[in-house]
Design a protein around this nucleic acid. Structure first.
Lengths: 206, 206
DNA sequence: ATTAAATGTGATAGAAAGCTCACATGCTAC
DNA sequence: GTAGCATGTGAGCTTTCTATCACATTTAAT
């Protein structure tokens, strides 16, 4: 077991009901604080306060503050990846013109719903990368996207598939995140989805 | 004068040569630390150490740690915006097929050269947004881009110009930043520029 | 040379945060 | 009931950082 994992892995598995409840309170309190007040305010003492739990109990189940956030991030990212994967699978048979807007929309919704993980935490939390690095979700999704694109190999006129995946993925996510970052965006969501889909489709078939 | 500005505005203007040198040492030391060791390590004491200046002197010219970083960020962003604006102006007469790759390349180079401001700081520095918010550079650039697009109004088949600018800008930057983030990218820079240009062009003329 | 302003110094106050530890209390099994 | 483990508690230790202040030194002006 490596050093980083020791800091992030849960320290102890709860065996009684009240312990489960304690762990739950801590995670919920952390989510609430991160959403409402930001990472800065999320000190371990404050988390234990909001959770209605002593600071000692907190450290009984989580070896560090990072570990709490990490478990929250993991839960969120895994759930989001699953949602996207499902939509991806549901789109397998459809032509690109239909599936692309659907996928863009799901991406947008997923990131909006979990903005505190996808947008705020990476900005507010100093060590965010070391936390999200350990998640294999990205590669997991990547293979799904890859096989999806292979299905439409004939409608895609780009020779370099790896690059095409990279570019489409990040141009969509880049725009979505920038859009969600603006608190008063003049563009409405429908227009954005249309434009992004158009951008992806015209790029892929060029 | 608002509270935030008071914290960021320089405290005192140096009037003698040695004071200028002191301020310079502080900014240079900060840049070095941010680049080599990251924001975490950039404590005011350490900055003054590296700068070869006492902590008291540091606080004579900068009211806070943020103020030092802010002045660094401003300098960098303004210089980068100027570079891009120059290329944009140089491209005014050219057709989109020629200008787009040039602009994408300049964007890539600018962000690579100043990665510590454009990529690292936003992730590592908690209050980065409040610092970069005050810069009017973005709007400044935006109007230039707008007038540039107006020149090519006939080659662009999208009706919603505002959205088109938003999408092109952020899809390029999103990809570039993601590319620069990967420390071992399998794609080479030339390929990326080609693909991004292609993506922009096919989107604009669709 | 004298004086005042500008500049430089660094010990240390003050605050905040992470985390531990000795102890208290609850639960379960025999 | 009592032994033993699981769980809960919170004062406070330790560290780290920002920022100040009383004082020292240098420069500029007369």
């Amino acid at each position: 077991m490596r050093a980083v994992e020791q800091q992030i892995e849960p320290r102890k598995t709860p065996k009684q009901g009240r312990a489960m409840h304690t762990v739950d309170s801590i995670i919920q309190a952390t989510q609430k604080i991160l959403t409402d007040e930001g990472y800065e305010r999320a000190s371990t003492n404050y988390i234990s306060d909001v959770a209605g739990v002593s600071i000692g109990s907190l450290y009984q189940y989580f070896p560090s503050k990072e570990a709490i956030v990490a478990s929250l991030v993991e839960k969120t990212v895994v759930a989001a990846a699953e949602t996207i994967r499902e939509e991806l699978l549901a789109c397998m048979g459809l032509p690109l013109e239909e599936s692309t807007p659907r996928l863009v929309r799901v991406l947008l919704e997923t990131r909006r719903e979990n903005a505190f993980v996808f947008l705020r935490l990476p900005r507010e939390m100093p060590g965010f990368r070391s936390v999200s690095r350990q998640l294999t979700t990205e590669k997991y999704l990547h293979t799904t996207i890859h096989s999806y694109y292979m299905q439409h190999r004939d409608s895609i006129r780009l020779d370099d598939l790896e690059t095409a995946i990279f570019v489409t993925e990040h141009m969509v996510i880049g725009c979505i995140d920038a859009y969600l970052d603006n608190e008063s965006p003049k563009i409405d969501e429908e227009t954005l989805v249309e434009h992004l889909s158009l951008a992806v489709l015209s790029y892929l078939s060029s």
